Simulated scan of single mutants.
Amino acid sequence: LDPSSWRLRVDGLVERVLELSLEELRSRFAHHELVATLQCAGNRRAGFLAVRDIPGEAPWGPGAIGTAVWTGARLADVLAAAGIQENAEHVAFAGADVSEEADPPQAFGASVPRHKATAGEVVLAWSMNREPLPTVHGAPVRLVVPGYIGARSVKWLERITAQAEPSDSFFQAETYRLLPAEADPDAIVPGEGVALGAVAVNADILSPGEGTTVAPGPLGVSGYALAGDDRRIVRVDVSIDEGRTWRQADLRDQQSPWSWRLWEAEVDVAVGTTEIVARAWDSAAAAQPESAAHLWNPKGYVNNAWARISVSPDRSAARGDRTTSPGRRDTA
């Protein structure tokens, strides 16, 4: 999209329809910066494959997630300028990208409830990590909805519509839905299943990697944890005996209320294959469930089961500093 000719239309149940250029958006509204983590609804989908295959879906590991510094205008300010009406219970968004997955093909779309849209953390971002927003991440402007699945943070944003009902977009009414295990994803009707919004509490282990050979003795383990919407990560537990006993990980300071929380722990491993397990708790006292088998669904969404990796302690492995911290990843 050409930034000079790009326009954002704000319409629907508003008092004033707006047509904003990028320059108008930047000059008319206060700039807001926040650190936020975005997570794909299919993050950690690969953990479901040991339960049952999920044809046609990307086998994401723990990396379909990322944290960045976003700068832009608050959506709440733009909606206020348009005069959002009282009967507008939802705010819908449309991007420029057209998907052939829908029949007929349609632009990517989504919506969030009014209470989320008018919260101060939702941003129309033109900058990522204090640099111009890259094309691959949605330039010239994308939506950033902290605490919700990444699919609600529409890229290449072109239209905002205040409306009475949730979006009927293929990508909200049919695709990003949590279906029962026995459902046929190719035969669902619009509105079937549970619409995905706020992300569930989740955590994964980033270091050491699966199958790593390590020296016996103290071993540094590190990863990330994330809680959805306005909840916070308050604890991460690590176990090396299948959850019979746990030790609490050290939590790093959180960069913002909307970012992941990095954690570190040290465990003592003996010779032989050892499974390391981690689980997170959030401020609503919700914890990750134990088994992916209890969560399997035909689209492979919301795998927030305990994180598990296996390592192989071997006396021949070289010792070194094995407390490796996860770094920042650019979000999808």
Rank of each mutant, 00 (worst) to 15 (best):
H32D: 06
L22W: 13
A96L: 15
R159V: 08
L124V: 07
L178I: 12
G220S: 07
E275K: 13
F93S: 05
R114T: 09
A68G: 03
R328L: 04
T212F: 03
S256N: 07
S21C: 04
A76K: 07
D282P: 02
E24C: 10
T135S: 10
A64N: 13
A187E: 15
L38I: 06
D321T: 11
R130C: 10
R152Q: 06
T161E: 14
H137S: 15
A305H: 07
N202I: 06
W263C: 11
R261Y: 03
I276H: 01
P313M: 09
T245C: 10
V14E: 12
I276K: 02
A195K: 02
V154P: 00
P132T: 05
S239W: 03
V154E: 05
E165T: 07
G243Q: 07
G66K: 01
A50H: 05
A285R: 09
L219D: 07
G72P: 04
L295Q: 14
D53P: 00
Y224R: 13
F29E: 08
E100Q: 04
V189H: 11
E33I: 12
V10C: 05
S312D: 13
L157A: 01
A88W: 01
Q255C: 00
V189M: 12
P59W: 06
V91I: 14
V35Y: 03
L206W: 04
L1M: 08
A88E: 00
W260Y: 08
S316D: 04
S325P: 01
R247A: 15
T245K: 12
T71I: 03
A64R: 00
T323H: 06
